[in-house]
Amino acid sequence: MQYENPQIPEDINTSKENPLKEFSVLLVGSIALVIVVSLVLSLGGSWLAGLIPYNAEKKVASLYDVSAHDDNSDHQQITKYLQQLADKISKAQNLPEEMKITIHYMHSDTMNAFATLGGNVFMFKGLLEKLPNENTLVTLLGHEIAHVKYRHPIKSLGGGIAVSIAMTTLGRSADSQILGDTGLLSTLHFSRKMEQQSDIEAMNTLKALYGHLNGGAELFRIFHNERAAMESKEPAEFFSTHPQDEKRIESFSDMAQKKGWSETGTLTPLPDFYRNAFH
C-alpha cells in the first residue's frame, strides 16, 4: 500500500457566496419568522381573549381607576347627555344587560374618542366640539359602543399580551407591566376589520334612531379635514388604524343603496348647553 499526503485546498471550507449575501438572507429570514410568529400569537391571543366572559372583563377593568371626577357643572351636564345617548344606542344595538356602557367626558383639546375594557368609552372635547349635530355625535358614539359590543378591546388586549409574553420569553425585560404595555387605559389598536365592523354597526344605529343616515358621513368628512390640516405633522393617534376617510364616506351611500335607506332627513340639533360649553 502506497502512502500519500495530498495538499488540502485552501478554500475547501469557504463558501463561494458573498458573506454579506448570506447574512442578508439570514436576517430577512429571521425578521420574517418573527413577523409570522407575532401574527400567529396575536390572532391566537385575540381569539382566546374573546372567549373570556364579559363579567370577567369588567372585573379586570375595575382594578384600574378609570374615573375622571370633574366638579364643573357644565362638564357634568355634557357627561349626562352623552350617557343618555349611550343608553339609547346600547338599546338600539341590543347590547346584553350586563354590557353597561360608561361614558367619560375628557375636557381636553385632544382629537380623540375610544372604547376600552369593561364598557368604558372616553370622549374628548377636541373631537366633540367639531361635531355639527346629534346625528353625527350618535355615529361616533355608535362606532365606539360597537367596539364594546363585539368585544374588540379585550380581543385587542389579548393579542397584545400574547406578543408581550413572547417578547419577554425571548429576553425582553420581565419587569415591564404587560397590561401597561398593551394600553389598558389608552387607545387600543383595533384592526381594520374591527373598525369596519363598528362602522357598519354605527350606520345601523343611526337608521334605528333617526330613520335615515343623514349626518353620519359628516363624521368622516371631519376626520378628512383634520387629517389634511395635519398632513405636515405627526398623525393623530385616532387616525392611525382607521380605514381611509373617502371609503368610509362612500360606505354610507353603499349601505343606503343596499338597504334602500335614505341619506337625507331632518338633522337633530345639539342642545344649547352642549354648544355653549365649548365656547
Rank of each mutant, 00 (worst) to 15 (best):
Y3S: 12
I8C: 04
I8L: 14
P9L: 13
E17Q: 11
N18Y: 05
L20W: 11
V25Q: 06
V34N: 05
V36P: 00
V36H: 00
V40G: 09
W47Y: 10
W47R: 02
A49Q: 01
G50P: 12
N55P: 03
N55T: 15
E57Y: 07
S62N: 15
S67A: 11
A68I: 09
H69R: 05
N72V: 11
D74Q: 12
H75W: 10
I78G: 11
I78S: 09
T79E: 14
L82C: 04
L82V: 10
A92S: 13
Q93Y: 00
E98L: 08
I103H: 01
A115G: 05
G118K: 03
L127Y: 06
E129D: 06
L131K: 09
V138K: 14
E144G: 05
I145M: 01
V148F: 05
R151N: 13
H152L: 03
P153K: 10
L157I: 15
G160S: 02
V163C: 10
S164G: 08
T169M: 15
L170M: 15
D175M: 13
S176A: 11
G180R: 06
G183M: 01
H189W: 07
T205G: 02
L206M: 11
K207S: 12
G211W: 02
H212Y: 01
A217G: 01
A217F: 00
N225F: 05
R227Q: 15
A229V: 04
P235D: 10
P235V: 11
H242P: 08
Q244P: 05
D245V: 13
I249C: 01
S251T: 07
D254F: 12
A256W: 01
Q257S: 14
K258A: 13
K259F: 00
T268E: 13
F273K: 06
R275C: 06
N276S: 08
F278Y: 03
